[in-house]
């Protein structure tokens, strides 16, 4: 099956939705976990926030790459 931009869009949407939902639910129900400092003395709240912002950009780039129109043979 040839993947269209719409198919890729839906896949990437759910790939992003899962961590975003987890982030929101963790903040709502286990905000204490967000105070952990797993890397370089920076807490999970900031690491996950940066992760969601940078992750959105990387997914957007990948989507743009995958949705490039195929090169035409002259």
């Amino acid at each position: 099956m040839k993947m269209t931009s719409q198919h890729w869009g839906m896949i990437f949407f759910f790939v992003y939705l899962i961590p975003y939902a987890a982030f929101v639910l963790l903040n709502a129900f286990r905000p204490d976990l967000m105070e952990q400092t797993p890397i370089s003395g920076i807490n999970l709240a900031i690491l996950s926030g940066f992760g969601l912002i940078i992750g959105a950009f990387l997914l957007a780039l990948l989507y743009g790459f995958l949705c490039k129109p195929p090169k035409q043979n002259s």
Binding site: G9, M10, F12, Y16, L17, L52, A56, L59, Y63
Partner: peptide
């Protein structure tokens, strides 16, 4: 920012 994911992908 997350809202732009819906804008782009959907």
């Amino acid at each position: 920012l997350a809202g732009w994911i819906v804008a782009l992908f959907v």
